[in-house]
């Protein structure tokens, strides 16, 4: 009955064309890995949590004494950056033996305090290879904690009396 077939599709061609187009669309959507911002932050989050945990553990007194008796407060009070280096390193390295820990974390700790109306900061402690690893390092993660100390660790650049100082530790993989 149909005298002229121009411009017509038959069922089988229609289905074939549909399937081809669908396969193409599906392939396009399914190929290629889309990196979401979350991806990059997961490993940061692990180091950050570890850093926060380590500072919290160091700022927990052994008995029910006030917080200024914690090991961390005493280290800042006595300006014992060397002790901080050893203990903080120990905490970062701790593991149960289930997985292999890559022991390549470096850190640099800074204390921020007030001297009258002037904010003041000084380098409190750092890891052994912190200088040489600066060039090749991955982006650093910052963890902070307010630490309660009862007096000035040294005479200049510090308020007297009870105060909170901010300890900031930058941690990175070398």
């Amino acid at each position: 009955m149909v005298m002229n077939d121009e411009g017509q599709l038959y069922t089988i061609e229609g289905i074939t064309a549909g399937v081809i187009m669908l396969v193409t669309a599906f392939t396009i959507f399914n190929s290629g890995l889309v990196y979401t911002p979350g991806d990059a932050h997961i490993s940061d989050m692990q180091i950050q949590q570890l850093g926060y945990d380590a500072l919290q553990m160091m700022d927990t007194p052994a008995d029910s004494s006030p917080l200024y008796e914690s090991p961390l407060a005493k280290m800042i009070q006595g300006n014992h950056g060397d002790q901080f280096k050893i203990e903080f390193n120990d905490y970062l390295k701790k593991h149960t033996g289930t997985t292999e820990i890559v022991d390549s974390l470096e850190f640099n700790a800074t204390v921020f305090n007030r001297d009258g109306d002037t904010p003041h900061s000084y380098q409190f402690s750092n890891s052994t290879m912190y200088e040489t690893s600066q060039l090749t390092r991955e982006p650093a993660i910052s963890v902070t904690r307010y630490v309660w100390i009862t007096g000035r660790p040294f005479a200049s650049g510090y308020d007297t009396g009870n105060q909170l100082v901010l300890l900031e530790v930058l941690i990175w993989r070398r």
Binding site: L9, T11, E13, I15
Partner: peptide, 9 residues
């Protein structure tokens, strides 16, 4: 025929 194919697609 075309209508059927297009609908399925």
């Amino acid at each position: 025929d075309f209508l059927a194919g297009f609908t399925i697609f």
